[in-house]
Design a protein around this nucleic acid. Structure first.
Length: 423
RNA sequence: GGAGAGGUGACCGAGUGGCUUAAGGUAACGGUUUGCUAAACCGUCGUAGGAGUACAACUUCUACCGGGGGUUCGAAUCCCCCCCUCUCCGCCA
């Protein structure tokens, strides 16, 4: 959510920002409704002032004077009811548009229509050339007996899977490795609830907008979070933190649930696009300071790059263009890992900063040294998401005989297995 | 799921229709006193939105006692609905 005062001061900035991000929002109408609401409130306040003073004088009045006073109060009450009626009609319109106003992108976000226009910032690692015909992760997984998509589909429908034996071990190994890395960096580990109230979905900016992407428990009015970002970022919602507490750096591992509505027929093979996966996510709640926000953004990006490098996975970092940014994001960097079976880089990480967009929605504030209550800044990034990350790990580390070498960094988590072979 | 008890400021806690402009206390901050610390005393000490001003300070108004609605000239207080917490019972990995 944006501060209405900033929209009043510079509406053009928000009209342009929405256009660049390809969101449809009627700023002119918002300002008209805002002006009408302000007027109603001012008049209502004047009425309340008079009502209060007349009401207070009542016990001291003579009978005649009392009748006159009561008559006046009746008039005021009518006027008040009319104004309240107007506010009742205007407020929902105002709220709805406000929820939709996107955060304008940062100055160094490239303009573009969609993900094809994201700008590559850097590449790391060398892409392996095979001297044999490499298999893709599905073939490897089936022949090694570590991925079973057929039975996943049998029991849970399309885009579901089982991981078995060394496959399950490898899945948990990358997660545990990533988690340990972040704990080593001083991030506080959290285990979190995943059935979230609508309020938490709205607070993080997923609602309105991502309802179609979300599994919803209608009987209980709860939503299965698509990422631990939701519970971790909303953890302190409604609270006033002290400045000394900030920044709060957290890391959570959780299962993530996504309906992938509208993606029918897209990325149907293998473990790339699935309904349920596990992810280690980093979140920073920080002071309301643009420079500090940028520095945190670089930090969480660097954390994930370090994990990718430790796993020996070639990747590139892209500066996500305006048309591919979410409503609340000021700027987003994606990390894309090289995936031989796709013969391209595929998104594995997404690092976003929001300024106070999420904090405003969830009323998350802190008290500054000057005793002012100010909205926090929030940021988040993937540390590792599996099994998508197993795609490059399996495909890039395969041998001609169909076995797969386990990256050295994962050795401590693999119960002594250095090579995954057919059993 | 059933029964009961509760929800007041950062915290504790008083408050059964106008004297509440939310008492009193704790914590915090500033000051006085003091060899230091402590204590004592004095003062400050909620959030949000208007108006006065170009901003701030300041002044003033309005709203807010879990949330929503109602009764009343007037509600923390009375009525209705909802939410949450605690205790007991039942069920349960």
């Amino acid at each position: 959510m944006i501060d209405i005062k900033r929209i009043r001061e510079n509406p053009q900035k928000f009209t342009d920002g929405a256009k660049a991000k390809k969101f449809d929002v009627d700023i002119d109408r918002l300002l008209a409704v805002d002006a009408a609401l302000l007027d109603c409130r001012k008049r209502l306040q004047d009425i309340a002032t008079e009502k209060n003073s007349v009401g207070k004088s009542i016990p001291k009045l003579s009978a005649d004077e009392k009748q006159a006073a009561l008559g006046r109060l009746g008039e005021l009450k009518n006027a008040e009811a009319q104004l309240n009626e107007q506010i009742k009609n205007l407020q929902p319109v105002f709220d709805e548009i406000m929820q939709q106003v996107p955060q304008p992108p940062a100055a160094d976000v490239p303009s573009g229509e969609d993900d094809t226009e994201n700008v590559e910032l850097r590449k790391w690692g060398t892409i392996r050339k095979f001297d044999f015909e490499p298999k893709d992760h599905v073939e490897l997984g089936i022949s090694l007996g570590i991925i079973d998509i057929e039975r996943g589909v049998k029991l849970a429908g399309t885009r579901n899977y089982f991981l078995k034996g060394a496959g399950a071990l490898l899945h948990w190994a990358v997660l545990r490795f990533a988690l340990d890395y972040m704990i080593g960096k001083g991030y506080t580990p959290m285990s979190v609830p995943l059935l979230m109230k609508d309020e938490a979905m709205r607070g993080t900016g997923y609602y309105p907008g991502a309802e179609e992407q979300t599994y919803r428990m209608d009987r209980d009015d709860l939503n299965l979070a698509g990422t631990a970002e939701v519970p971790v970022t909303a953890y302190h919602c409604g609270e006033i933190l002290s400045a000394e507490q900030l920044p709060i750096k957290s890391v959570a591992m959780s299962t993530c649930f996504r309906r992938e509505a509208g993606a029918a027929g897209k990325d149907t093979r293998g473990l790339y696009r699935i309904h349920q996966f596990d992810k280690v996510e980093q979140v920073i709640i920080a002071e309301n300071d643009e420079e500090k926000s940028k520095a945190h953004h670089q930090e969480i990006l660097a954390n994930s790059e370090a994990v990718m490098q430790a796993l020996g996975l070639p990747y590139r970092v892209v500066n996500v263009c305006t048309g591919d940014l979410g409503r609340g994001q000021v700027q987003k960097y994606d990390i894309e890992a090289w995936m031989p079976s796709r013969n391209s880089y595929g998104e594995t990480h997404s690092a976003s900063r929001f300024y106070d967009f999420q904090a405003r929605r969830m009323n998350l504030r802190y008290k500054t040294a000057a005793k002012k209550n100010v909205f926090c800044h929030t940021l988040n990034n993937t540390v590792i998401a599996s099994p998508r990350i197993l795609i490059p790990i399996l495909e890039l580390n395969q041998n001609a005989d169909g076995s797969v070498n386990v990256p050295a960094a994962l050795a401590p988590y693999m119960h002594g297995r250095e090579v995954i072979t057919e059993r």
